[in-house]
Computed example of a mutant assay.
Amino acid sequence: MTDREQLLVELVDERGAAVGACSVAEAHTEPGRLHRAFSVLLRDDSGRVLLQRRAATKTRFASRWSNTCCGHPAPGADVAAEAVARLSAELGVAPEGALTEAGSFSYRSGDQASGRVEFEWDHVLIGRYNGDVSAADPDEVSECRWVSVADLRTAMAANPYAYSPWLADVLRLAVVN
């Protein structure tokens, strides 16, 4: 199995233009290095979104609920293609049709539990999926659930620490209602 912390990420400037590469581990070491990432949010035909709880062994924001899938494209790689590959590797699912980019945003958030930092230029990709998730990789995901956007927003307001710090911005870009 590949040590994902040693894979390369694409460093970017404040406009999202590529400026180099470093390892995942280096990019997430305080103070952090701005790098390209993606966040996928899958919806079903009833409008619910698929969430995952990050595995307890994750190096950043472990055991928190987050969008369907997150990852880092390799330097120079196609973001949507890399996102589809991560959906398959983490959850064992494929979107119904192509993923669509809803926009991007930059954020920085430190994880007090691990001492690591997220400093990412995050591409938000949305897609459709109407199945279940029965083949999730336990090293990546501890559980999944479908939830309405309204219920998710209520839960995030009541207990923001239970959710990844980027999820609110993902919802802002990905969800119209």
Rank of each mutant, 00 (worst) to 15 (best):
V84Y: 00
N67L: 00
H35W: 08
G71W: 00
T154E: 15
T59D: 07
L7D: 05
M1L: 10
E30I: 02
L173Y: 07
R33C: 08
R172F: 09
P73S: 05
M1D: 11
E118H: 13
A155Y: 03
S66M: 15
G71P: 04
A56M: 06
E143Q: 12
A17P: 02
L41K: 06
E120K: 06
A83R: 09
S46M: 06
R172A: 15
V84A: 06
F105G: 09
V24R: 05
D13S: 02
V84C: 04
D45E: 12
N67V: 09
R145F: 03
S66E: 15
E26F: 07
G76K: 11
S109P: 02
P138Q: 11
L7E: 08
L42H: 09
N67S: 14
R53V: 09
D111W: 00
S23D: 07
K58F: 00
A27V: 06
R54D: 05
P160L: 05
E120D: 10
G97T: 10
D44T: 04
S142W: 12
G110D: 10
T68V: 06
A17V: 04
P95Y: 07
T57C: 13
E10D: 00
L125I: 12
W166F: 02
S134H: 13
A150N: 06
A37L: 04
A150W: 02
F119Q: 12
D122E: 15
A98M: 05
N177D: 11
W121A: 14
L8S: 08
A25M: 09
C144H: 01
A135D: 15
L167H: 08
T100E: 14
A81D: 12
V170M: 00
E26V: 05
L7N: 06
A89S: 08
A150R: 11
V79G: 03
L171I: 07
E118G: 09
R64P: 06
L99M: 10
A83L: 13
A74H: 10
N159Q: 10
H72T: 04
E90H: 13
D3F: 13
I126W: 10
G131H: 08
S63Y: 05
E90I: 03
D44I: 07
T68P: 02
S63K: 01
R108W: 03
R15D: 04
P95S: 15
E26T: 09
